[in-house]
Amino acid sequence: MLTVKQRELLQYIHERVSETGVSPSFDEMREALELKSKSGVHRLISALEERAFIRRLPNRARALEVLRMPDQPGGASAATEAKAPELKPVRIPANDTIEIPLHGRIAAGTPIEALQGTEQFAVPAALLGPGEHYALEVSGDSMVDEGILDGDFALIRKVDQAREGEIVVALIDGEEATLKTFRREGKMVRLDPANGAYSPQRYEENRVRIQGRLAGLIRRY
């Protein structure tokens, strides 16, 4: 049987992935479930993984996939939970790739020059959802707590608006771009790092233009 909090988290992840194509951050999950710390979120996710309701996708930031939902609102039976998850077949061939624009490097630490470059970057088609996308090479370590490391390639879905808690590409003063978590603070926009060594960046709203939100991550070894 799933606990109340496990069911709440599973439902929340399912709704966010269905709506946006991106699983919520640990901070968003903590706030949604009114938990005091991220460690509580980790424990719930581990429990759902063990029961084969979700799985983590390797080499992608904030990547959780819902494998199944409880058969009834009150939770799945023990017999149901013991079954192996029924996965829908992926109809995109594993070697099928799509080329998207590669717009150079973007700072995960401090803002850098506005996005430039016209190279193409081959991405497995299965990693991209609907919409128009581009890729950026990450420079810096301020998003490490979200699993985004220096040298990673961030896959960005083009959007011009952001919701609270989404990881976005923000263009500052039309000149500098940065990859951060989007927050509102009164009439200001706050761009939060995911590394305690860095401080949030605050700007007047008219200085910030959203250029996309994080849709996936590719890491080369």
Rank of each mutant, 00 (worst) to 15 (best):
A47W: 14
S25E: 08
P89N: 02
P70L: 02
I106N: 06
V66L: 00
K180W: 03
P124F: 12
I45A: 07
E34N: 11
P124I: 11
R157C: 08
L57C: 01
I112H: 12
R219H: 14
P101I: 03
F26E: 10
E113V: 14
K38G: 11
R220F: 13
P89G: 04
P93T: 08
I172N: 00
L127E: 11
G212F: 03
P101D: 01
E49H: 15
R202F: 12
L179R: 01
G75M: 01
A76V: 05
D27M: 12
P193L: 04
Y221A: 10
A32V: 12
H133A: 08
A194S: 04
S142G: 13
A52K: 15
T178W: 03
R16C: 12
R55F: 08
P130G: 03
K88F: 07
G131Y: 02
Q72V: 10
R68F: 01
P24S: 04
E34T: 14
A162Q: 10
I218P: 00
R105D: 09
A76T: 01
K180V: 00
R220C: 06
L9H: 08
Q161E: 15
G117V: 04
E81M: 15
K83T: 08
A32W: 12
A52E: 15
S39R: 13
N95L: 13
I54C: 08
I167P: 02
T110R: 13
I167E: 03
R184D: 01
R209T: 14
A122R: 15
Y198V: 00
I218S: 01
K36D: 14
T3W: 12
L10S: 05
D141R: 00
A107M: 06
I218A: 02
A135K: 05
P200V: 01
K180R: 10
T20D: 11
A84Y: 12
V208C: 03
E49Q: 15
A79C: 05
E65W: 01
M69A: 00
L136M: 06
I100T: 03
Q201I: 05
G104T: 09
